[in-house]
Design a protein around this nucleic acid. Structure first.
Lengths: 255, 255
DNA sequence: CAGTGGTCTAGACCACATT
DNA sequence: ATGTGGTCTAGACCACTGG
């Protein structure tokens, strides 16, 4: 595993350089030709990397102009992001975790509803502090129906990605619903993240489902506000009557 | 202009065939090799077309598998996502706005990059406080290239939805990229929203594009954290829809 | 004008899914 | 074993931007 994808490497390098201020918002990136030389790769590969950053809302490109850095924080596109660990690696950040506890207990009302289980059905819960390059970045609260949670109980939660572990355990994760909002840190959050109570946090609540629509996860992640952001691309429907085979031209939008 | 782009032609053909039921949801598309033959083009070009459809959430691809048509997700909700006014109305809330100012001025570096304009090109900016049932809920900062902004200058920004006005003025809004994060209120935000400085706000930065991929808006909305949240549904391959729901944003049913 | 990104071609090898 | 998409190479021409 971890076979390095060349275009991912180039993208990671650029994301890193941007995050560390080598390229500031508004600055031009190196030209594609320059990047080809620097990474000894073909232009198609470089363009694939840039296309990735474009879809993440990190840079903007245009014919004849150099690509430029947009005003951004480290950003995750929703496409492939189920896993904090994976996300960090893609961004050139070292992920980490400190497990607070793992329990098996009966679900309370709200959790039973979220997982579509009978009241007081057994669930497995995980509570971890997540780190980026060794620094506190996110508090993670995960809840699984017991059937799924078994795999979690049999896993060293300090060793890495639970998501990855579930996938390789054969758990069928197909769709997810995320709700994003902002809240102030409560006492528990504040202590772990080492910030004052009330500090703004970005909360992402997630429910994941199998192909059949059975809920298999209900979680609550709270990010330090300057550690993460999320990007979403959306398309508006074309007015119905128009497009036939011959369409108006169009360079690049997202991705 | 309107020089036909080959990959756009291929994409348009596929979109059409899908819309007309030639390929039903779940069906495999023709293989890339087959499309190469049919359109007498190189594989890279075909892949560019498929990449476009993938980014639109129309198909899903995977190594070794044929690309398949996804359940078509009605992006009808796009308008509701884009327009604060429409979203409120749909949620049974009375929208309102207090315009702070509307200006025309040269773009600074960051804004020029975001709108893909030459440095110091003229832009039209709007700064409004938005209300829900008469209460402050959001601070809205909108920026348009002058060509688009003209329509805004000729509009009473206290009267309602700029988005609606642009659409009816014939502005072609096709795609958008949103980046969501959390920040503390600065002094300007705090004064308008009537909260202490540092209160957590949900920030949504948006870039909107025409069919040709030309940027037509770059904006920054900051919501009181208890007034709004965002919900995103995604499938393991491709992001599909985005929905905005109102305050009592309880865990939402999947579908 | 030279430099840059947008598009396109015609090959190649690999990993994975299906048979 | 075959077919498929994912990745990559090494060229090419064009349209546009910028000095």
């Amino acid at each position: 595993m971890a076979r390095p994808q060349q275009y991912e490497e180039i993208a990671a390098y650029l994301r890193n350089a941007i995050r560390e201020g080598t390229f500031e918002p508004g600055d031009p990136l190196p030209s594609e030709a320059e990047l080809c030389r620097r990474f000894d790769s073909a232009r198609g590969t470089v363009r694939q990397a840039l296309s990735l950053l474009r879809s993440e809302g990190v840079i903007s490109s245009g014919q004849g102009r150099r690509s430029r850095v947009l005003d951004t924080v480290p950003t995750q596109s929703f496409d492939n992001i189920f896993s904090f660990s994976q996300w960090c690696v893609r961004s050139g950040i070292e992920p980490g975790q400190v497990t607070q506890w793992v329990t098996r207990k009966p679900a309370d009302d709200a959790l039973a509803a979220a997982l579509e289980l009978p009241d007081r059905a057994p669930v497995v819960s995980v509570f971890r502090l997540r780190l980026m390059d060794g620094e506190p970045a996110m508090v993670e609260r995960l809840n699984y129906p017991f059937e799924v949670g078994q795999h979690v109980l049999a896993f060293d939660t300090d060793s890495g990605s639970i998501y990855q572990h579930l996938i390789t355990s054969g758990v069928d994760i197909r769709t997810a619903t995320r709700t994003i909002d902002a809240i102030g840190a409560d006492e528990e959050d504040a202590a772990l993240l080492d910030v004052p109570v009330g500090t703004p946090l970005l909360r992402v609540r997630r429910r994941a489902f199998t192909t059949e629509g059975t809920p298999i996860e209900s979680s609550d992640d709270r990010y330090l506000f300057d550690k993460a952001s999320f990007t979403i691309n959306s398309v508006r429907d074309t007015p119905s009557g128009l497009t036939m085979i011959s369409t108006p031209a169009g360079p690049e939008g997202p991705r």
